[in-house]
Simulated scan of single mutants.
Amino acid sequence: MPSDELPRFRPSPLLRLLIPVVFAFLVQVPTTLAVSLFARVGPLAVTASVALAAGAALALLAARRWPGPTVAVVSAMSLAALLVPPDAGPPLLALPFAIISAVARGARMWALLSVGVAWAAAVIAAGFLDSAWHPIRIAVTTLGLVLCFAIGEGIRTRMAAAAERRAQLAERRRTVEQQERARIARELHDVLAHSLSQIAVQSGVGLHLFDREPEKAREALASIRTLSATGLDEVRGVLGFLRGDERTPTAPLTPQPQLADLPALAAARSGLGLTVSFEDHLGGDAPPSAVQTAAYRIVQEALTNVVRHSAATSAVVRIDRSDDHLVVRVADDGTGIPADGVAGGGIRGMHERAELAGGTIELADAAGGGTIVVARLPWNGASP
């Protein structure tokens, strides 16, 4: 997200509840009173019309907790308002709000039955009262009611899609965190297994020869000291490597990832609504191993940021050669660079990896939405 872009305004739940109530009340009550007085109906009819208009608007206060009963009550009040003089009174705007709210909140059957029965009763009652409505009026009103149902269904579909998307993003974050814990455990196991097993063997030898051959026991103890120091250095190297601190002089014993491992990384990051594709335009050429490892780690961190901090549905990893540089590009269609610094640690780690390899990192918001990460690394590694 660009730094100068204002955050999207999201009204509070209370405000979203009150807006239809206030709007319907302010429109229905004054217009109903004005039309009734203009038509010169009796005081009883005026009182009934205004009371129905006010009651239908206030009934919307229960739309969130009881959407089904609310649409039933508003439909009954709308039916009564149609039958109270004057015949050409204004329609109650509370009914469209009640229909849309009920359908959007899953009370579709309540809305269908309530509105259907009320509308059929209104048409039949108008015929019995010798005030049969014109077919155009019936058709237009019916079309308006159908439109309200369609709007409610559209909102319901969007709400369901948003809820599913939130669930997918939460699951993706949990999956990445589990994979990260497994990766740390695997790295530490690979580093410690050799050293500790050798220490166990040498300590057994030392104990066995301690009394008979003290010189041999001394050699075993010296070997244990060397192995333990090496093991500690390797553990520090792994922990520093996992933190993104590649200034650590030692390296883990596990094989370092190369560019050939990127397709597997892209496949592992795909799933739960995210598709990661890989494009190799090197034509079989390959830079030195250290450059490949740096490029892999940059792609890994960029995809981790996509999964954790971006509502992306697709990402593309592309590697290419431009003159004497390896160019790595990761593009997604998510929400862009976070303005609150949520992904700051990952971005800083990518910059550090690129600098250690003698290259640069560029991050930008894509024109159509999303983020583009471009790393340019010297093909032959950092200059001495």
Rank of each mutant, 00 (worst) to 15 (best):
S228G: 04
F23Y: 11
A120H: 09
F97A: 07
T371P: 01
W133H: 08
D233R: 12
G334A: 00
V74D: 02
R172E: 01
S223D: 12
I298P: 00
A54K: 11
A266V: 04
G334D: 02
L33Y: 08
S289A: 15
L265H: 03
S75K: 04
A120C: 15
D285A: 15
P378T: 05
V103K: 00
S195T: 07
R297N: 07
L363H: 01
R8C: 08
V238L: 01
R8M: 08
A76W: 04
D233W: 07
A167N: 07
P214I: 01
T47Y: 11
D4E: 14
D333E: 03
L147S: 12
L79A: 10
M350Q: 09
A34E: 14
E362D: 14
R105M: 09
Y296Q: 04
T226Q: 14
P69N: 09
Q256E: 13
Q28L: 10
H351N: 15
V306W: 02
G344M: 15
V50F: 12
S197T: 13
N380W: 12
V306N: 01
G204Q: 12
A125M: 10
A367L: 08
H281K: 14
A343C: 03
L113P: 00
A170W: 07
R329Y: 02
K216P: 02
D4R: 10
V103L: 02
F210T: 08
A98Q: 05
S49P: 01
R318H: 03
L58G: 09
G55I: 00
R183G: 01
A286R: 15
P90M: 08
W133A: 04
E215Q: 15
G368L: 10
R329E: 13
S310G: 02
R247P: 00
A294C: 11
W119A: 12
T304V: 07
T304R: 11
L356K: 09
A354M: 05
Q178M: 11
L112G: 04
